[in-house]
Nucleic acid binder design. Structure first.
Lengths: 147, 147
DNA sequence: TTCCTTGCAAACGATTTGCATTGGA
DNA sequence: TCCAATGCAAATCGTTTGCAAGGAA
């Protein structure tokens, strides 16, 4: 998945709802496309080195979330992090460090992912809930924080 | 698990660190013990009908979290919800409604929970991460919101 | 008395919004 | 030209904290 291909896909997705894919929006997608995990507005703003004011980053994030380009994550108190949706980035899960609060992506081998599917299908079978997506969040200590 | 037994367990846990189990703290534990899922500070404050001021609810929540009595959850933007820790309440997972933001507990049948264990053990085997706990969050629409 | 706990109000940090300006189709 | 997008500053919301008063050991 190259940067250019992300841009093409996002652009056509946004076109469907008459939303412009401007320079600022491109910049945000680019930062997220090359990140190792979900990022918060402030982190994105930092990596953009002031090219885009913080309030515009927030506006971009909500436009892109609305369009289904980004997915929000709430692994840490009071902070919302975003990442490219699975149709852009592929299916994966998260390792959340309980010490530094960082989040890293990881994928499961096929057999274990199949187990996950069974679990999710079971829940879909419960009358009281329409299962949509699943996300497995494993908490622990990342390599840097694990003394 | 009765209310009285929760109180006994929490009291002795707090005693270990010389923390008092006051009326306000009991009230918070009681609300959480009878909830259908994790609650945020404001929700707890409401259910207490003004018996405990909001700032004291916050202080109680952080004292109880510190003591390992409560576990925080971040399923919704900008809102932290708490619930009794698993040693008080048993192991379970969460259904998060993407429409109303509500959270409900659910448990998996043993065979599926065993699948989860395999998955978590696999992650524990990864060099770069010390797995601690796992929580499965399924997103979808709850019975009330599913039109 | 001593230290923990509480209540209130002020402070904070993340996020949102009003409004005037800019820019693309 | 016209409306979406932007930048800035002010407002909002959940949460935290300083400080003085209350309470238990």
């Amino acid at each position: 998945m190259s940067v250019a291909s992300h841009h093409r896909q996002v652009e056509s997705r946004l076109a469907e709802s008459d939303v412009r894919y401007t320079a600022g929006r491109r910049a945000v997608v680019e930062v997220l496309g090359s990140a190792e995990g979900p990022l918060g507005a402030a982190e994105i703003h930092d990596r953009l080195e002031g090219q885009v004011p913080l309030s515009s980053v927030y506006r971009t994030l909500s436009v892109l979330e609305e369009a289904g380009v980004l997915i929000p994550h709430f692994a840490q108190k009071g902070l919302t992090r975003y990442e490219l949706a699975e149709w852009l980035r592929g299916h994966h899960h998260h390792l959340v460090c309980i010490q530094c609060g960082g989040v890293e992506d990881f994928t499961l081998p096929d057999d274990l992912e199949a187990d996950m599917d069974r679990i999710v299908r079971h829940i879909g079978g419960l009358a009281r809930f329409q299962a949509d997506t699943h996300s497995l969040e494993i908490e622990g200590r990342c390599a840097r924080c694990a003394t």
